[in-house]
Structures are given as structure tokens and as C-alpha cells.
Design a protein around this nucleic acid. Structure first.
Lengths: 144, 144
DNA sequence: AGAATATACTTACTTAGGTAAATACTTTAG
DNA sequence: CTAAAGTATTTACCTAAGTAAGTATATTCT
């Protein structure tokens, strides 16, 4: 019944995204947009590559989300010294709004894990990190 | 740093979907299609409502995925006694292919959790289940 | 029986994420 | 210095999942 594990991971992922989206509605933001803003708050200006590497998503995903954030005035972009790069940073408006948004997100996230003790939360994180993609051949898998 | 927890859940969810999709490529299937086939294998014929309730997704998501599975010949649908309902079941072709697909999926899932002991896998499942959506008011959240 | 309500599913539209291929700029090799 | 290879981003197209609203059938209430 290991199927249940991934089913559960998937469901909790969707659940938390749903809750975060609900909380962000008031700001006109979505969860994935938030994750980029959070990233820029931490690291200051970044290239798009730095963003997608940090968030472990593909480049085109960042292109799209960044475009929306730029259109709605949350971030600014400028050309890098390397003209292929586009350097991204928070707009003044975003800088001002961040504390309020962060507070709201913290509330939601606390609510989601309110059934777990601090220790359990740490354990959960540790266990999740042990899930990894491994090179896997048909031959390797035959002995089970 | 509780942010990390949801980030991790989200990432592992994407990772496992990616791996499962890769494994299903040979069958011309995608992970969410597989989850419906798996469901039908377990329960036999089901209404679409039963499927989306079991998988905890919204009805329109199932409508789309079911439509694709029907087009590609994996499932059949027939009208229920209640004419609003559509009863879904595996095609003969799907019935035949299921064991092979299940075996492949099991390989992938085993590989993903190969870094965890059986006990850790159980623990992980227990901890994940403790993540829940809770009614949450601004007032409730102020004391923290 | 007929009107109002509820239910099952669908349609239209949105964000999120993936792959493959194109574009534009940089670096490297000859 | 120019051709080839590499890199950063974008475009095009696919599945997945959500919300809101529409349609068709069932049920309920007067």
C-alpha cells in the first residue's frame, strides 16, 4: 500500500496550495507567485535561472509566472551585464506589502500544521527529504 | 522556517508525478489518468462522483481526465439508472494491461522511497495525514 | 401537478507545471 | 576572426487542477 504515500503527498500539496491561494486572494496573488516573491525577499535581485534553480522548477514555468508578476507590478526586470540574463527584483510596492502578506501566509501554514507538534514537523521535513529520484533500471527493479 | 515544510511537500509531489509520468510514457498514460485506472481496478464500476470523492479532486478535473481515458480506449461509460450519472469502468484492454502497468508503477514508487525504512514510510504517512485544513479566522490567529 | 430546489455532470476560463524547440547572446576552438 | 558549441530565456503545446456558471435530470414541497 505504498501507493497511499504518494497519494497523500499529492493531496496535501494540493490542499496547502488551495489554502494559500485562498489567503492570497485579497492581494491578487497566487501561491506560485508568492513563492517567487518570497525568494526575492530573501535573496534580493536574482536572475531567472537562480530563481528556477532555487525553486526546482523548469525555466518556462518561471518565465510565465514572472511575466504575470511584472504585469501586475510586483516585480521589475532589467537586463544583466550578460544580455541573455534578466535580473529580477521586488518592486517598491511589493517591498511595502511583503510583511502583511508574510503574516497572512504564516497564519495559514500554522493552521495547516496545527495538528503536529514542533518535533513532528521537523520529523516530517526530514522524512520528506529522504524521498529522492534515483537512477532506476528495469534490471535493478527485478529483485523485489 | 515552516515555509520549508510546504515547499518540500510541494516539491516531492512534483517529483513523484514526474517520475510516474516518465514510467507511464510507454503506455501513453499520465499520472492522473493512472490514478483513475487504479481506482476503477479496486472498486470496479463507479460514478464520476464516487471517483472525484475518492481522489479528493473537483468534478471538472475528473470530467476532463475521464474524457481522455475514454477517447484512448482505457475506460467505458454508460448511463446510470439515474440519467444524470455516468457509470465508469475499465475497458477489456485496460483490464489486460493493468498488471504490467501496476508492476512498473510499483518499481518507481519503491525507488522513490528507497531511502526510507518501512517504519519511516509508515511514520511519514501518519505525519502527512495530520496536515489538515482548519476553519481559521483572523481573530483566532492573532495569538501566536 | 407544477414550481422550487438539489444533484451530476459539463463547459469556459484561470493558474501551474512539464517537454521540445526556437531565439539571442556568449564562449570556445580552429 | 569566424564557425561551432553552449547558455538564458522564450514560445508553443501538453496535462492537471481549481472556480464559476450552465445544463439536464431528480426530488421535494405546496
Amino acid at each position: 500500500m505504498k501507493k497511499l504515500l504518494f497519494h497523500e503527498v499529492h493531496q496535501k500539496s494540493r490542499l496547502s496550495i488551495k489554502e494559500v491561494n485562498e489567503a492570497l486572494k485579497a492581494f491578487g496573488l497566487y501561491s506560485s507567485q508568492w513563492s517567487i516573491l518570497f525568494c526575492l525577499k530573501q535573496f534580493g535581485s536574482m536572475t531567472q535561472k537562480e530563481i528556477w534553480q532555487y525553486l526546482s522548477v523548469e525555466a518556462p514555468t518561471i518565465t510565465r509566472t514572472i511575466a504575470r508578476l511584472e504585469d501586475s507590478g510586483w516585480i521589475c526586470r532589467q537586463e544583466g551585464k550578460d544580455k541573455r540574463q534578466r535580473i529580477v527584483y521586488l518592486s517598491h510596492f511589493a517591498e511595502q506589502k511583503m510583511p502583511e502578506i508574510e503574516y497572512k501566509i504564516q497564519q495559514v501554514e500554522r493552521a495547516l500544521v496545527s495538528g503536529l507538534t514542533d518535533t513532528e514537523q521537523e520529523q516530517l521535513l526530514v522524512l520528506l527529504k529522504k524521498i529522492t529520484a534515483t537512477k532506476f533500471t528495469v534490471e535493478d527493479g527485478m529483485n523485489g
